[in-house]
Design a protein around this nucleic acid. Structure first.
Lengths: 148, 148
DNA sequence: AAAAAATAATTCTATATAGAACTAATATTA
DNA sequence: TAATATTAGTTCTATATAGAATTATTTTTT
């Protein structure tokens, strides 16, 4: 069997791109949001008003991680917490105007990042790469789901 | 232009696979090593006796991260620190017998993980995927190198 | 050779991350 | 309906991660 090292490669890509993304955010004067927080805001841009469990699913972070990160995002004025009237256990997270205004700039950074990421790969290669990534992600999600 | 989200997908894959890997390690009775520490030991299995800067390069972690992680790995008896005789600034990290003995078991977990990761993809797809990953990693490495 | 620059590692501080244990609320079962 | 199980969030604790500042050593420049 071949010597595979996808997981190791992914870890390295994640590590370096996080550091680069953080620097790019600062160079665009986004100083009160880092890349990890950006991931959360990003899924809220896609769909506002999500419960914390929804966010856990959509960011792939644990609920406990979100709990503390949302505290900081709330403190910094990026998100609000509200109660769900139909289910008192739930907390609904929504974006503030402040974070809505960040969207354009953040997307510029994202695009710069994506350009760097995929430099030298053809559209076809990128398509196939992201297709494989989604496949892998689904493998992992369904495995983790089964574990419970 | 197409809507790319490779970075976001990679973050999610990294997050979930880390959690799964940690559970698998425990289920194989590897209780004194987690997946993050395993990454460091893994590059030392490939090549023993590396300086911390070398490890930073080969793991894609920052030197400060390594500094504290190596403390814990040393404490747990997995690695040793030694001075470089030719260059007194350098610290050479080597594996202990204990961590050498872990290798077989750790590889079993890795293989199980790789199987899960790539389930449903053909050899050709995996080859192309890892090829693209390496390409992306090189893009990031050379960019981060230029920054300095 | 002395001064300046670069390199290696550490410490300090802040944030990110997640498991275990907990509380409150809702859903399911007997 | 009462008892039980499940679900949603939080807190607590430990580890992971990295930037800034610092010290020691080596290399480069003048």
């Amino acid at each position: 069997m071949k010597n595979r090292e996808g997981g190791f490669l992914i870890s390295k890509v994640k590590q370096i791109s996080g550091r680069i993304f953080d620097k790019k955010l600062k160079s665009y004067d986004i100083t009160d949001l880092n890349s990890a927080q950006g991931r959360i805001i990003f899924v809220l841009w896609k769909k506002n008003n999500q419960s914390i469990s929804d966010l856990a699913t959509n960011t792939a972070l644990s609920k406990t991680t979100l709990s503390s990160m949302l505290n900081r995002l709330e403190q910094a004025g990026h998100i609000n917490r509200a109660f769900d009237k139909n289910d008192k256990r739930k907390t609904i997270i929504s974006l503030t105007e402040k974070s809505k205004l960040l969207k354009r700039k953040y997307e510029d950074v994202s695009n710069e990042m994506i350009d760097l990421f995929y430099e030298g790969l053809s559209d076809k290669q990128i398509d196939e790469f992201e297709h494989a990534l989604k496949h892998i992600l689904n493998n992992l999600i369904s495995f983790e789901g089964k574990q419970k």
